[in-house]
Structures are given as structure tokens and as C-alpha cells.
Design a protein around this nucleic acid. Sequence first.
DNA 1: ATGGCTGCTTTGAGCAGA
Length: 271
Amino acid sequence: MRFRSHHSPELPPLKLATWNVNSLTVRMPRLIEWLGSARPDVVCLQETKIEDPKFPHLELAAAGYAAHFAGQRTYNGVALLARDGIGAVKDVVRALPGHDDPQRRVIAATVGDCRIIDLYVPNGQAVDSDKYRYKLDWCRAATAFIADEIARHPRLALCGDFNIAPEDRDVHDPGAWRGQVMCSEPERAVFRGWIALGLEDSFRLFEQPPNTFSWWDYRQLAFPKNRGLRIDHILLSPALAAACTSCRIDRNARKGAKPSDHAPVIAEVAQ
DNA sequence: ATGGCTGCTTTGAGCAGA
């Protein structure tokens, strides 16, 4: 038998993206435009802030994407978009098993031959707050879920707004942020714990410009001054990491009128 | 200097985000 590469050179790479849109209702025009220009195959959205019956799935279908979602009024809410023709979407999970929680922060599904997990990790507000304890408890439940998913799906991508800046180089001013929420040692230990499950941070597989971030505060001209954090991530299982050809943050999507405070992260995986 | 934007709320000043 003739040698055959695992990857098919005739197929374009699979394009995975994650984006906290901070209200899908407000961001729909920008999302539709961005889908048309970036043409991702799979998109994980966070902070949709919309109830399932009101989810704009018809508009997304018209743009060429099938949508699956787990939403609620006002806060939180996640969605998973799959470009038409990329493969069937199966085995959708809309909550952390065994974790009783009214907040809609997770959706997972198999898209084609890849397992996709979309997380909206709690913000945590401040390290001395109840919300911080909720964040760490939620992350503990997420860790068990992720481990179980990895065991059953070798081709897996863990995407989302983690609300964790994993290292000081992911922070515009590490001194000011030291020990603060999103940078505290217990949160960074959670991130390292997910890496320890065998995942790789796709962003760090490649040379990156210094001071590349995915979130900037709306206030104080933080974006033009590039005072941001890298808190949105795409982690890949070994099978996908080995085939990953790029990862970048689409800073342009943070520009212009009515932006989300987050920019999308996009990773490409050879098929 | 503890604010500063933005989105949401049975519509208003308060919460939450990060």
C-alpha cells in the first residue's frame, strides 16, 4: 500500500473561532459581517444574553451557519455555530453534568469529526467575593467534564472566554494585575490544570507579537492604548495541536462602531 | 482618584462585566 498522509492537501484547514460578543442582539450586524469576511467553520460565542426562543437562528442560517445554543435572559449564554457543509452537529451538551447551575455557560457538540467545547467561565469579580468562589467551584466541575470529554474524543478543541490570563505576558500591566481576578494564582492553576489534561494553548504554538490581547476595557481608551488581557483561548488535544497551522487574535474586530469588548481568537487545523 | 464604558432592566438608577 502506498504511503498516504494523514492530512488531505486538497482540503482547506478547519477554521475554529471563539468570540465573546457581549450581547448577540447588539452584535448581530457585526457578527454577520465578520462571518462573511473571516469565514470560520466553527464559532463558539459567549455572552449572547438572549433566551433560546429569541435566538436569531434564521438570520444565521441565511448567513450559512447552523446554530446550537444555551441561553438565558440578561446574562451569560453560549452558542455554537457550524458552517453549512462542515459536517453534522451531534451529541450536544448544554450544561456541566452533575453541576446544578441556572447560569448558561457551556455548550459542547461534535462537529464533523471534532469535539468542540465552548465555555464562558465566570468572571469572578474580585478575589474576596462570593463570585470568585463560584468561579473556582465552576472551574472544578468544568475540569471533570473536560477530562471526561477528552477521554472519549481524541480530536477535541476547548474554546471560550476563560476569564483567565494564564501568564504575565498575557497582561498589559502584570504589576497592577498581580493577584487580581483573572490573574490570581488559583485561576492560573485552573488553566494549567486544563493544559495538564493534555491540551495545548494553540496561541502559544506560534510566534506571536508581544502584547497581543483578546479583551480591552471599554473605558479609559484601553483599546487604542492596548491595555488589555489575553483571556479568550483555544486549547487543542494532541491530535488537533499536531495539525494546527495558525492561531491569531482578530484585533480588527475590536475596532469601529459598537464593538464587543473582546476580539475573536481564530485557530486553523489541517484536515 | 475606586471612577472611567457598555448592555441590560417589566425604564431607572443599579447591577454586571473584566
